[in-house]
Design a protein around this nucleic acid. Structure first.
Lengths: 215, 215
DNA sequence: CTAGGCGACTTGTGATCACAAAGGTGATAT
DNA sequence: ATATCACCTTTGTGATCACAAGTCGCCTAG
């Protein structure tokens, strides 16, 4: 057989719904406190309540959605204390990931990061909040993939997911015209093979944005 | 009304099943690679497939169970690389939690930790693997609850959950008669208010056990 | 005009069913 | 004796339904 298996030709409905909702939440398409209904999700994706419920359960388990006592589901409205915790988590996890990626960061990776960073700048100039969040996370994910640490990366993505709706609320009222400064520091540290500098740059980049949220 | 609401008199079936399975997995009642079936779970708990599926989905999202490509569900058999990652995660998260708990650790907490530690020793002497895992985690959780950082604690518990079946495999073949040494160091550092010592003791305690797994 | 209550509608939960795919088992051919 | 194939059982998936609890709006009484 030349082509033995197209491998998962048709993804399961619950998985498709899960991925779509996850993207929306992580990239700030949904505002904090927004309510969702199982029947509404099912209607939108052309499936019954069953896959809708499964995808919602999964997202609740990841902290992307919260369940009220009566089972109603909505995006979370994070308290300042919770935001501070999530910022610390981002810092802990992403500094570790960056540190592990450093010895594996070849020139091709650095060039790719610079290209992504240009997209970030573009999104900032266009006042495109969702685009900013998406490209910013792509910048970080591209670097961290080199760490070859899927468990840690998955945990970092879970934190991003929890912050998604809140980040939208932030960057919606953020008026900034410059590209992210710390991204340049990260790239410079990567080029120089400067591990302490990289750790500091990542910590700063991760902390900076979230600090505005708790004001 | 004197007693307005007994508050959630009857927990939802899926939640009850979830909690039961989660306990089993976290405390090492289930061996790595053990297969589960939705109908089997439903039969055991006297519910239909629906709540069984929801609880399983939730546990899969937390990394406590894995889904084969065909949807079959089982406990994970962790690779050495994955175990090393999870050990690093434990170290990162729990050092932070301990550090935050330190300024809040009064004498009553320390005494409670000593009592729990006695139970740990007892479980070790009785060759009670599950009891050891349970009391050991209770020791850590009791300390970390003082950190007042629910998001970080939840993430740490997720890591424990992922390691559950594997820890069982470890402590099953572990032949040790002494109580955990590093727990005493943790308690000593708490008494002395010694933050660097506490961080080191927690990191050592967390790393020590898992190091044996990757041999 | 406002507060309280009643009723209709919305929503989540859990059970059941039909279906397709995967796994296992036994028979058969070489 | 072993490899292969067919059949049957097991299993997950998704749709539908009945039911209970919650939510919202409207109406009425004060």
């Amino acid at each position: 057989m030349i082509n033995p298996k197209p491998k998962e030709v048709v993804p399961a409905a619950h998985d498709r719904v899960y991925r779509a909702l996850r993207s929306r939440i992580m990239y700030g398409d949904i505002a904090p406190g927004q309510a969702l209904t199982l029947r509404g999700i099912g209607r939108e994706f052309g499936v019954s309540m069953t896959p809708a419920r499964e995808s919602v359960r999964r997202l609740v388990a990841e902290g992307a959605l919260i369940l009220s006592t009566s089972g109603r589901v909505s995006t979370p409205e994070l308290s300042n204390e919770r935001i501070e915790e999530l910022a610390v988590l981002r810092s802990l996890l992403e500094v570790e990931l960056a540190s592990r990626a450093l010895p594996r960061a070849h020139i091709a990776l650095i060039e790719r990061l610079q290209m992504i960073n240009a997209s970030v700048s573009e999104a900032v100039q266009n006042r495109d909040g969702v685009g900013y969040i998406r490209t910013n996370l792509e910048f970080h994910r591209t670097l961290y993939l080199r760490a070859q640490a899927p468990a840690i990366l998955a945990m970092a993505e879970t934190v991003w997911l929890q912050l998604g709706p809140t980040m939208r609320a932030l960057y919606g009222r953020l008026r900034r015209t410059e590209a992210p400064h710390f991204h340049k520091l990260i790239i410079a540290a990567l080029k120089a093979g400067d591990e302490p500098g990289l750790r500091l740059a990542v910590r700063s980049d991760v902390t900076q944005g979230l600090r505005l949220l708790t004001s």
